[in-house]
Amino acid sequence: MTTTVPRVFAFHEFAGVAEAVADHVVHAQNLALSKEPYALKNTGGSNSTPANSSSLNVPGSNGAGNAPVSRQSSSRSIGHSHSAAGSGLRGPSSSKLKKIKEKRFKIALSGGSLIQVLHEGLLKRQDVLWGKWDIYFADERLVPFESSESNFGNTKRKILDLIDTCTYGTPRVYHINESLINDPQECADDYEKELIKGFAGRDSVKLPMFDLFLLGCAPDGHIASLFPNFSENLRENLAWVVPVTNAPSGPSNRISLTIPVICHSHQVTFVVEGATKAPVVKTIMERPEKGLPSSIVNEGAAGRVAWFVDDDALTDVQVTKKKYKFLVNTDASQISPSPPVPE
């Protein structure tokens, strides 16, 4: 297995990782939301010019981009499209629009220490357009949401519950159906249907395409809930979501998005910290032929993969480190104190 070496950004301490990852996420958000929000019919002329959608509204302005988006009371939030009149766009009349579709930032999150990294880095920023986010989960442990093992539960407690939604809007969050946690296959099938609604709609697509897929990596080498030597799941190339039973660590029953879904994302980012991760990072970077899940992703998404790690995780690892170049303005006016972590 010959793997293209990913970009590896190294930092002396955890705070540096959190700050850089937050910048990376906001940059991905801005790229996603700068795309054209609608398509034109063939009008035979050039007088109708689309609005410049690259100018994003930051909370605190009077633009339409920071309008709060309310989640439905059910466990699902189904996307919708704005009308021409209500979108606030200056462009062609509604009769010349083929389709108006609100552009969203679609992100997949894993669990573990990644959630704390995002808590530390994102909540203190004032340029996170939460109301434009569609949040999915890379995997989930099939436990009640109140459990400390639940990825959605931890994300809710450490991030979602702490967002100032009046200012920044409410993200749409797509999680598993809690009533199905006793049936891994049914839970996986149900979550795959949610992805189909969010990414395919009436169209036929082979794979969903996330704007950003954020992953950690456990000391045993598993990412999301894809474990080494679980070859059946690692070789899956049709399903978007698979059930995982008898997992070798943690809760035994889980669901996970698959390798093809991860590799199809615009960007795939690993966030790894701590000396306990150094041995597995060494194997991933120096022995890709071992076929650990991260090595498979490094190969399958070559050119679109970045690793954010602290120095402890790179102990005795032979890899070229890069200095992270901040891409989003982070002056004092864009940063506010982080709210405390809930007990």
Rank of each mutant, 00 (worst) to 15 (best):
H175R: 15
A218T: 06
E186D: 09
V173Q: 07
A200Y: 07
S249W: 00
R235N: 15
E232Q: 15
W240G: 10
L214V: 08
A239T: 06
A200N: 03
V261T: 13
E178H: 10
S179A: 14
S252N: 08
E186T: 11
P171T: 04
E186H: 04
P248Y: 12
F210A: 12
F230S: 12
V241E: 07
N233I: 05
N182H: 15
D211P: 06
L195M: 14
Y168E: 13
N253C: 14
I196R: 14
E186I: 11
A218P: 07
I176V: 15
P243R: 02
R235P: 05
N237M: 10
L234E: 10
G201H: 11
T258F: 01
L234S: 04
I196W: 11
E178Q: 15
W240F: 05
Y174F: 12
S256Q: 04
P208N: 09
V241D: 10
C187L: 00
P228W: 03
E186M: 12
V173L: 08
D220V: 03
F213N: 08
I223V: 14
E192M: 02
P171G: 06
E178M: 05
W240E: 10
K193W: 07
G169N: 02
E194K: 13
P260N: 07
F213T: 07
D203I: 01
D220G: 07
P243A: 07
I223W: 08
C187E: 00
I196Y: 13
I259S: 08
I262T: 06
N246G: 13
V244Y: 04
P260A: 05
K193D: 13
C187Q: 02
G198M: 04
Y191T: 08
A247V: 08
A200I: 03
D190T: 11
I255F: 09
S256T: 15
Y174M: 09
H222P: 11
C263W: 00
T245V: 14
C263H: 01
L180N: 08
S204L: 12
D203S: 14
E232P: 02
E236V: 01
L215T: 07
P184W: 06
L238P: 01
L215K: 01
P184A: 10
V244L: 05
G250Y: 06
A188T: 04
H264N: 15
A218I: 00
E178S: 15
P171I: 00
T167N: 11
I255G: 11
P208D: 10
T258L: 01
A200T: 03
L212M: 09
E178V: 10
K206Q: 14
P228Q: 03
G250N: 09
T245R: 12
V173M: 05
S204R: 09
Q185K: 12
S179V: 10
K197W: 10
L212V: 05
S225W: 00
R235F: 11
E192P: 08
S231P: 01
N229W: 07
G198S: 09
N177L: 00
A200D: 07
F210M: 13
C263G: 00
F230N: 14
I262P: 02
T167M: 11
N182E: 15
I181L: 12
L180Y: 06
